[in-house]
Design a protein around this nucleic acid. Structure first.
Lengths: 124, 124
DNA sequence: CATAATATCGTACATTTGTACAAGCTGTCA
DNA sequence: TGACAGCTTGTACAAATGTACGATATTATG
């Protein structure tokens, strides 16, 4: 079930889309509230971003009362796959190992986590 | 030894900067040749990107004959740290675990790699 | 030394991105 | 049912991004 090719996501759009996934269904308000404290952007801005996400096909909405309730129209896996792929290409020429290494060294990953990962890697 | 706050890198700039690191010292030509086959952009475009990287402080250059030889002015670690951090924030709300998981499941990581990572994680 | 070849520089420009105001709907509550 | 609060829509706009042409400078070459 291969997905259609969707237009690229801008960084901010990605951020908003993540929140939509996290909330499952969300109004503009909901998204605003869920924004990390460090990253406060205006209601109107979030609106525009959601509009653009909809135009690009990443979310849809349904009307509930006077509010629009947005929900993702694509599986996060799909977007993650592309995003990680692009990121890896750009910063590491596509090789995932250096990224893993970086995360292992600096990202608070502990031995237990790695054990779990090992199981995952083994399974597939 | 904390680094100055450098302006943000655009995706394309990041890509070019990576090649400069990889080549250590590089002319515009060198960078062009090193571009992945899939991603051919014009000489002039690479030039502009290098110019912008220099203006932003990420690279410097020295003249050799008629050619400019560019070289990185910042340690890759620094840029990687910021890039990975931003990426993580945007796509995973800052949590590195899901990314590790994704890489373990889909990125061609094998048990041996994981062993190495474990050692790294343990060391720090 | 004149010229061809090769680089760089200045400049340009269409898009995309981030951000937001103002005006117009639409339920809701007194 | 009329006014209000809350939403959406349309529109705007500066800055960043991706891409590149044309003019100019410099080196090597015959």
């Amino acid at each position: 079930m291969t997905q259609k090719k969707l237009p690229a996501l801008s960084p901010s759009e990605t951020e908003i889309l993540r929140l939509v996934w996290q909330l499952d269904k969300a109004t503009v308000q909901d998204v605003c509230n869920k924004l990390p404290a460090k990253r406060k952007i205006a209601y109107a801005t979030v609106q525009t971003l959601l509009r653009r996400l909809e135009k690009k096909g990443y979310v849809k909405h349904r009307i509930r009362g006077k509010a629009h309730v947005f929900f993702a129209a694509v599986k996060s896996e799909h977007v993650i796959k592309r995003s990680v792929g692009d990121f890896l290409d750009r910063l590491f020429g596509g090789d995932p190992i250096p990224l893993m290494q970086y995360l292992a060294e600096h990202g608070k990953i502990n031995a237990g986590d790695i054990e779990k990962l090992k199981r995952l890697a083994g399974k597939k």
